[in-house]
Every structure is written in structure tokens, then in C-alpha cells.
Amino acid sequence: MNGPRGSQRPDFAAIADWIQPGSRVLDLGCGDGTLLKYLQQTRGVSGYGVEIDDSNVLECVMNGVHVIQSDLERGLADFDDNSFDFVVLSQTLQAMRNTERIVREMLRVGHAGIVTFPNFGYWKNRLHVLSGRMPISANLPFEWFNTPNIHLCTIADFEKFCTERGINIVASTVLTNGKRATLMPGLLGELAVYQFSG
């Protein structure tokens, strides 16, 4: 929902790094299917994308991705327990109305979940707020009044969310300008990529 669609996004390579060849992948909010297509080509994965938007569904068909048109807010009733190796939610978590429910659903349907989200604690975002304005950037391109991002969080917030719910963080990567940020990721990281299991 956020950031560019149709082009290679920086979080895609980070996600692909974790996905074993031949895995079954469910990509929630798959957009035009770029990530799944990339994973099909580079990892030989199988699976489906889930997308609500008509034009994205059309793009998925053009990209040769199996897509199910559905509203994630309705849950993942079309999918059975433990039927995927990975369930991916890239740059959509912060736009979900029922955040906790979708994370639970990801863990019901898949062995592991992968989310990416813009780190609201990134120093540039903090600077925006300090200067009295809501942040606007490549990862957060909307004004406060028209943003779909209703549940923004920091890296620390997300880790606390997982800990409190007994969700194991398996791996994480933090990116800034498409490069890995290892130093003080909570402050210097722009985009967070987390893998977790139940």
C-alpha cells in the first residue's frame, strides 16, 4: 500500500534471502505480484498473492502470478491452517485496521510470517515530528489526512508487540536507502523486515 509498486523494492531482496527454494508462499497485499514473480523466478516458490485492488489483480495476471482477490480485513478464511511455509505482508501491516488479527491469521496459515513496515522511529521521522509536522518520505508518502497508514509503529513497538503475544522473532533486517542498517537500527533504520513464528 505504501511505496512504489511495479519496481523492485528494497525489502524484496531481504525477504527473498529468508525463503528456501521450493517453498510455498502466500503474499498478502501482493500489489502487482512483483515479489511473488521474483520469488517464483529466483526461488522456484509456489503459492498465491492476495490483493483487493482491481488494477493490481490485473497486473498479477499479466505477471503470471496466481492471485486471489480478497479483503485482508476479512481474515484469511480461504486458506487452511499450516498450508504455507511463509506468509508475507510487505508494507501493509501499518495500514491494517485489525493488526493483531492479521498477525494471528498469518501464523495460523503459515509456519512463519514475514512483515515489512516503515520504522516510525527513523531519525528523519522523529525530526519531522520534532519540527511539529507529520513525516512525509518515500516510505511514508501521504499527508496525515489521506494516509492509509493508521497503525504506524517503531521497531521497538513491534518487538514489544511480539514479545507480549509470545510470538518468536526468528530474524530481522533493517534497511535505509535499500542498504542494511546495522548501527542503531531503531534510530537509523528506515524500513524494518521481520520474520516470526508462533
Partner: peptide, 21 residues
């Protein structure tokens, strides 16, 4: 239609589903 799609997904069949408004 979703019943059909659900059954096909259960079978891991290659299915695409579109709901036209």
C-alpha cells in the same frame, strides 16, 4: 465462487480469483 476457490486452494491448484464490482 469462493467455495470453488477455497476447494482449489486446499488442493494447491493453480487458481486465480477475481471479484468484479
Amino acid at each position: 465462487s469462493r467455495e470453488i476457490v477455497h476447494a482449489l486452494i486446499k488442493n494447491r491448484a493453480p487458481v486465480t480469483y477475481a471479484e468484479i464490482d
